[in-house]
Amino acid sequence: MMLQWRDSSPGGKRRSGIARLWLALSAMRLPPILSQLLQGIQVPADLSERLYLDQARDFSYIMRAISMVGITTLGLLFLDFWHNPGAPTRCLMIALILATYAIIIAEGRAWLQKPDPSWRDAKLYFRRVNVALFGLGILWGGGWSRC
């Protein structure tokens, strides 16, 4: 099926002209907004450590919650696809994802229990969890084709 974008009536031509103009203007405005968003905010040097530690604490709680939801989803998928063919590969994928969630939960727990954490500890924690999240993303992204 082919999408019909063009409208040959005079009113349609006018509308499509306005739409093109709007799109062009939006497209022009998008790059600076995105650039601003990507740059993030400039955290003052005296606050970065405090901010990092606060973020790490909140991050560990959120990641724990996301991991719990993710594990539950995995359970549902496992049950729903129980009778489908290709169970060994699927089970392996589920097991890997489960393991990654477990790692994320364990990292979070370890972080929360860390006595007197420093800015460097927080940075390390983020780095480790980011790696785990990247792996989790690949697993989830590539896993659909294995279901």
Binding site: L133, F134, L136, G137, I138, W140, G141, G143, W144
Partner: peptide, 8 residues
């Protein structure tokens, strides 16, 4: 997390 999962 978002990037690999979106691409996948």
């Amino acid at each position: 997390y978002w990037l690999p999962i979106s691409i996948g």
